[in-house]
Every structure is written in structure tokens, then in C-alpha cells.
Design a binder for these strands. Structure first.
Lengths: 89, 89
DNA sequence: AATACATTTCGAACATCATCGATATGATCT
DNA sequence: AGATCATATCGATGATGTTCGAAATGTATT
């Protein structure tokens, strides 16, 4: 296994190495897509904190973000999630 | 999703949120089982550092450890790895 | 353009983590 | 028991991560 591959994988795992982010991904994955406005209540954290975790998930490529009017919507990048699954074999 | 479930999953992901631990798990998984004596050279870290990472993987339940004479041997807990795979669906 | 609301960025406090040298513990052999 | 080698623990340091209040930015509506 190459150094670079291990680092890329570690970055993906790190993106999910927090309960808040696990909950967020689960929420969005099961809903198909979801509005940022619901997250603070759903995960029990402040609005800036949830925004921070969302941006980490987007940066890791696990989520996509789109502005729709006043609200921001998120959905899961299935390919990227598939890369994680594939890595566990 | 329950709070406890998200925390357990986050702990599993956190266990792999470091390139050294990704390499170690990959090494051990592909070899079937492996001796701790080879790890410092394989991952390019000191002996205390690799020992630290191994203990984290064992604590997370992803590895098993057994003393065989002078050396310690490790192998992957497939059930625990399967739990990770299952979580990504 | 002015207001209102949603979201991100900033700044700082606090906690956790990675790393390694030094030391301690455990295991084998003579 | 003493010597030797493998591994774990300790102590410390520098880096990284989580959290939130406050302020800045973006978006729509009037």
C-alpha cells in the first residue's frame, strides 16, 4: 500500500471520526437530501458547530452542497461513500 | 439513529483516522497475521509509536493480539470490520 | 436600499492526539 | 539468576480538533 493511499483513506475516515458528523451523514443519507436549517436541533449542537462539521464533510467529498433560496441543501456523494466501502476489503 | 450508536461508529472511524493505523490494518489484513517486530520498519515510525497505534486498534476491537514466545502477533477481527462495512449502508 | 433571516468565518478556550526518548515490563535462553 | 531481546508505559512537546459567541457574508422580500 502506497503512502499516499493510506493518507487519503485516513482523511476519509477522519471525516467520520466524530459523532456529530456520523449523525449528519446518516441523517442526510436516509433522507436523500436535507436542509441545513434542521441540523442544529437534530444533532444538539450550535449552528456554527454544525456548519463547521458540514464543511468538513463537504471538503472530504462525502457531501454535496447547493444553495436553494435562503437555505443550503446537502446530499451524499455515493461514489465517495463507495470508495470508503471498497477500502474495507 | 441513537446517540450511542453514532458514538460507537465514530470511535471505529477514529481508530482508522490516521495513516499509520490504516497501513497497519492493511498490512495485517493482507498478511492474515503479522508480528509486531516488522511494523516499525514497515510504517516508518519508532517502536513506541507503532506500539501506541497497535494498542488503539486493539482497543477499538479491530485487531486481536497474542503473545507467541518473544513476539506479539496480530490479526484482524473480521466481525468488527464487518460492522464498519455494514454501517456504510 | 433597507430589513430580516440563514449560513459561514473569526477568535479564543479547552481537549485530544501523534510522536519520540527514556524507562519499565515481559519473554526466552544459558 | 543473569543476560538479552521484544514490547509497553511514562513524560513531555508540538500539532490538531471541537466548541461556541460574536461578527461578517450571503440571500430573499418589501
Amino acid at each position: 500500500m502506497q503512502d499516499g493511499e493510506a493518507e487519503d483513506l485516513a482523511l476519509l475516515f477522519k471525516a467520520l471520526a466524530d459523532p456529530v458528523r456520523v449523525k449528519l451523514l446518516n441523517l442526510i443519507a436516509t433522507a436523500g437530501e436535507a436542509c441545513a436549517c434542521d441540523f442544529p436541533a437534530a444533532v444538539g449542537k450550535s449552528q456554527p458547530t454544525t456548519s463547521h462539521h458540514l464543511s468538513l464533510l463537504v471538503k472530504a467529498g462525502l457531501l454535496h452542497r447547493e444553495q436553494r433560496g435562503k437555505w443550503a441543501w446537502f446530499w451524499v456523494d455515493q461514489d465517495r461513500l463507495g470508495a470508503l466501502r471498497a477500502a474495507l476489503d
